[in-house]
Design a protein around this nucleic acid. Structure first.
Length: 336
DNA sequence: AACACCGCCAACCGCTCCGGT
DNA sequence: AACCGGAGCGGTTGGCGGTGT
């Protein structure tokens, strides 16, 4: 952690810079930012920093909001299920923390990144040392366990394409499904991710947040009072919180060779648009998830863990399609 | 009690991407 | 096409607190 005050170096520097605070956020600053976000909504971060009366750069405000103040953040230790998901997703996505975080409602990329670097990485390393099994094989949690990479590697291109086409033609991406999932939780419980239904503000603004919690969802566009509906995605012109509450689709990726490490990704805005457009048009998928808690993912994929480690080569394929199925992780339970 | 070591994690930094002009 | 500013991402830093000696 950084010291709440200036880091010393450029104290004598220009006025503007020297006015900007760095380091830890005080409860007062948190309250200012939170109050501003609730009343005004998200916008240009540098404006937010200025208008909220914070001596912070916009970047710092953004980070504070995303990593700490956001009302939908889950706190506390990672559950074994979450760990499992992180490990699996990391085996596919690599260090693309934001995308991994998008699959774990209430968790931030920073949180996951820290967790990975401090805990999971070492654990997997130790596992590797203790046995010749790959991390993907090391989990002996029974039928729930899913060997994602092993499964993918065994798939031929046709299977993948079919799967991906299915995923797109069924109109509902995993991001949409998770949005629906999250939306449903919000519908029954405005702050399902907060421990004990209480936003635990370590810096001391808890009471304030208790009072503001209900207003927050309304202000950021989560609640439609007219219809009693809670929306999972927000209007982009009002606020960009949509990206926080809904789960953006994973980017299309191309995979070559047999490496399980991440490959440089190709941004696919077309896909994103597609998923955005289709996101809330179909709820069947969501209902399917709810009713498929006991489904073994291998069954969903239509294959088992065959030929793990064998060489494979795939052309362009839609990771989103793949991830959609991964989002079926039967052991996933985001309820707190 | 004092010190050293280590892990966690909040926050910063630098970079890339993207949209606007 | 080039430039600029803002947003977002991943890597890294460094302070705090816990634990061991």
């Amino acid at each position: 952690m950084r010291k709440p005050d200036m880091m010393g170096k450029d104290k004598i520097n220009n006025n503007i810079k020297s006015k900007l605070r760095k380091g830890l956020w005080s409860p007062e600053e948190d309250e200012k930012l939170l109050r501003y976000m609730i009343t005004k909504g998200q916008g240009c971060w540098s404006d937010i920093a200025r208008n909220a009366g914070l001596q912070r750069c916009g970047k710092s405000c953004r980070l504070r909001w995303i990593n700490y103040l956001r009302p939908d953040l889950k706190r506390g230790a990672f559950s074994p299920q979450e760990e499992e998901v992180i490990i699996h997703l990391h085996s596919i996505l690599g260090n693309r923390w934001s995308q991994i975080a998008a699959r774990l409602p209430g968790r931030t990329d920073n949180e996951i990144k820290n967790f990975w670097n401090s805990t999971l990485k070492k654990r997997l390393k130790m596992n590797n040392n203790n046995s010749t099994l790959s991390p993907n094989n090391s989990d002996s949690s029974g039928p729930k366990d899913v060997n994602v990479m092993g499964g993918i590697m065994s798939m031929n291109e046709h299977d993948l394409m079919t799967m991906c086409m299915d995923s797109s033609s069924s109109t509902s991406s995993s991001s949409c499904m998770q949005s629906m999932h999250a939306t449903n939780m919000v519908l029954t419980n405005p702050f399902p991710l907060l421990p004990n239904n209480r936003y635990d503000m370590m810096t001391g603004a808890t009471g304030f947040l208790d009072n503001m919690a209900a207003a927050c969802l309304t202000q950021v566009g989560m609640v439609d009072h007219d219809h009693g509906v809670v929306h999972g995605t927000l209007e982009p012109n009002k606020t960009r919180l949509g990206s926080d509450f809904s789960l953006p689709p994973l980017e299309s990726r191309s995979i070559e060779d047999n490496s399980s490490t991440p490959i440089d990704h190709v941004k696919s805005h077309n896909n994103n648009n597609h998923f955005k457009n289709s996101c809330f048009n179909n709820t069947d998928h969501y209902h399917h998830i709810q009713s498929s808690n006991n489904v073994v993912v291998e069954d969903l994929f239509g294959f088992g863990n065959h030929g793990q480690g064998e060489n494979f080569r795939m052309g362009e394929w839609d990771l989103e399609g793949l991830m959609q199925d991964i989002s079926y992780f039967p052991s996933l339970d985001f309820q707190v």
